[in-house]
């Protein structure tokens, strides 16, 4: 159930483009044609699906405060979280490079259709954003991190596909000349983002602590005793 919820949440409610406005640059620059948009979108899904879980592992076993405890007790106090940015970026850039090499070797036809988009992805802030969100939202398991990565990627894919389709059609409309191209794309994206805001009300709620987690009766009596002492001892 959590998986399905997280999946739809990351596609629609937390849509990378329309809710958090990440990956805008390539979204605007590579959305002139549907076919190229599909290529870039697919590449983004692919890279997000790999790097988010990978960075989850890095975060869990290397970066978090206390993450090194698997090395032994004496490492438990290390906190390498200041390295997060660098490690995440390094993973992403390495993965992109690696994917490029593997695809080129095993499927030249896919490489030809994806090829030029892969290097673009390393600088797409939606990718780094995905990993940073994964870290700050404290996604608990490896499985959920994978689902989150794929979901965010699909969200981005949908967004670029939609805008590319609109841009192909709008060429036949009578847009004021200075607004053609980038200008009208900005405005349409704004309107689409307003539309996507209506997803915001879905799937919220929850987060209540269960009744069993409240302070126990025994502890309550002890706290009362401590507080009474204050009243007696000081003015």
């Amino acid at each position: 159930m959590e998986y399905i919820e997280l999946f739809f949440k990351s596609i629609f409610i937390d849509n990378m483009v329309f809710a958090t406005f990440l990956g805008m640059c390539s979204y605007l620059a590579v959305s002139k044609k549907v076919t190229t948009a599909v290529g870039l979108g697919a590449a983004v899904i692919f890279v997000l699906a790999i790097t988010v879980p990978l960075n989850w592992l890095l975060d869990k076993y290397l970066l978090q405060p206390g993450a090194l405890s698997w090395l032994g007790e004496e490492y438990a106090t290390y906190d390498l979280s200041f390295l997060s940015f660098i490690m995440f970026i390094a993973t992403i850039a390495t993965m992109v490079q690696l994917v490029e090499i593997v695809v080129e070797k095993f499927s030249p036809s896919l490489y030809n259709s994806l090829g030029i988009f892969l290097p673009l992805i390393a600088v797409n802030c939606a990718i780094l954003g995905g990993s940073l969100f994964m870290q700050s939202r404290e996604i608990p398991t490896f499985g959920e991190a994978t689902v989150y990565g794929i979901g965010s990627g699909i969200g981005w894919f949908l967004a670029i596909l939609a805008i590319a389709a609109i841009r192909e059609k709008i060429r036949y409309s009578n847009v004021p000349a200075p607004l053609r191209g980038l200008g009208i794309t900005f405005i349409i994206t704004g309107l689409m983002a307003i539309g996507f805001m209506s997803f915001g009300g879905m799937l919220t709620g929850g987060g209540d602590a269960g009744d069993e987690n409240v302070i126990s009766q025994t502890a309550i009596e002890k706290i009362k005793k401590e507080v009474e002492q204050i009243d007696n001892s000081k003015n």
């Binding site: 200008g183 794309t185 405005i187 994206t189 704004g190």
Partner: peptide, 18 residues
């Protein structure tokens, strides 16, 4: 809200290109 930033930018582009 962020969508209005997009639309404001669109208008700036419109003015600049006119």
């Amino acid at each position: 809200l962020a969508p209005m930033a997009l639309i404001t930018l669109g208008i700036i582009i419109w003015i600049q290109r006119s």
